[in-house]
Design a protein around this nucleic acid. Structure first.
Lengths: 247, 247
DNA sequence: CGTTACGTTGAAAGGGTTCAATCCCTGTGG
DNA sequence: CCACAGGGATTGAACCCTTTCAACGTAACG
């Protein structure tokens, strides 16, 4: 049993999904129970969909490797990019309301996920009181993310948006304990542009500038941060010495 | 008991809060029980706060009359307007996660609310199984609202944003069964501008244009829609005859 | 090895901002 | 009741950032 699981990966104990379980004190024994309902299938190929708009909601997914884009279409048929998800992130909550998925989730790269069948998860949440609260917590986290996205779109110019986006990605890798000054990012510039409310041309120009300014380079699918401080400065992120006027 | 309540208003039966109870089939008896925990205090004066960031979360509020603005501040101290809430809307869910309110809620006008103490609401949700699901449903509704806001900011130009904003407000009145071609809107243009990611000047210019084009007028605090169709057209809302090229 | 989609680069145009002056409404105090 | 102050709204003109359009370069895939 344990060997089967380790064919793909270790147990939930060292899985990013912990982030929705552990913080409020889920016991090791509980994690093992969670571990038992997880399905680990063979990886998705690039451009394969994890789920699509309107499809019946039956599971949430924790990403183990790769990258996933959530998107939908506006009334006028334009693509709307809602966000990008990396190893350790959980997607599928958009299906929780209507019992059908709201968005499309597509693999941007070869991607492997853990599938958490929702009915079993519900059962489990009856046995583990904190789980329901956890799910709410994740949802409200997503709510906050949405607000940050709006803030980005309202208050920041193109330079700041791109810088903030890259730094945000770097931080997510950092939080997961990965290298964050140099990482693979299999996201099309086109998709980033859609997400940031810019055109691909603008993103391209800004990246060229960042590169020649020795801030960051993003070529092919490799991001290299040359200067964390410069990047954060452009992004408009307080660097420890800003905002000392008030305090 | 009933007289006390009717001093301010009738029971929950004709309250906007129904919208979070009724849809999934809450019984009349249940509504009465909900009715019993509702506190109805004297109205808030203009510019008075319903709650403030960081304050301990202890209740959610249903707006009976007036208008409420939710806002916060960015790291750089700029005001961020998250939304406007009208009679029938429910605010306070931003406190659910951290147990402290995330935003500031201020009355834009003389405003009366029903207060739902959260501990009592929790108790009640144990007795009424659907209530928890309802809360989740409302939260995810707010999630969708956030996405729509992002979409607005990404895809729409200034004209469309303003038109869509006004039409959205009108529709909310319409859904509540009020007059929607002529209504009071006690929101400063300055605040709308912040919400839409525009400057007050731009909003002003656009409103002037809409007025002289016979689309809509918003003067003082009175909105008059001269042409619903024109307004929706500018907002980019399919009017029943658009998008027939594909189908 | 060609085809297709994405990325880059340039020049021009435009939409929204910025800055500044003025107006208007509301609330306040004499 | 009127005068004044203050915040918001309006209007104009100049500027600037981002888009648009178009051409070309380049990576990925069959």
């Amino acid at each position: 049993m344990n060997e089967v699981k380790s064919a793909f990966n270790a147990s939930c104990l060292n899985c990013g999904l912990q982030k929705i379980c552990f913080p409020t004190g889920l016991l090791k024994a509980d994690i093992d129970r969670l571990d038992d309902i997880v399905e680990r299938k063979s990886p998705l190929k690039k451009n394969q969909h994890l789920y699509e708009t309107g499809q019946k909601f039956n599971a949430i997914f924790a990403i183990r490797a790769g990258a996933v884009k959530l998107y939908s279409y506006s009334d006028s048929g334009e693509e709307i990019v809602h966000g990008f998800y990396l190893p350790g992130d959980v997607v599928g909550f958009d299906g929780l309301i209507e019992n059908t998925y709201l968005y499309n989730a597509v693999a941007l790269d070869s991607t492997s996920v853990c599938t958490l069948p929702y009915d079993q998860l519900s059962d489990l949440s009856l046995k583990i009181p904190n789980l329901n609260k956890q799910i709410m917590s994740v949802m409200s986290k997503k709510l906050q993310d949405g607000q940050l996205h709006s803030e980005l779109l309202i208050k920041r110019n193109a330079d700041q948006r791109v810088a903030q986006f890259i730094w945000n990605m770097a931080e997510r890798y950092k939080n997961r304990g990965y290298a964050y000054d140099e990482f693979r990012l299999s996201i099309l510039h086109r998709d980033v542009a859609l997400y940031l409310g810019l055109t691909p041309e603008t993103v391209s120009r800004i990246l060229a500038k960042f590169n020649s300014d020795g801030i960051v380079s993003w070529k092919k699918k490799e991001v290299i941060i040359y200067s964390e401080n410069k990047l954060k400065a452009v992004a408009g992120i307080s660097n420890g010495e800003v905002c000392k006027e008030v305090g």
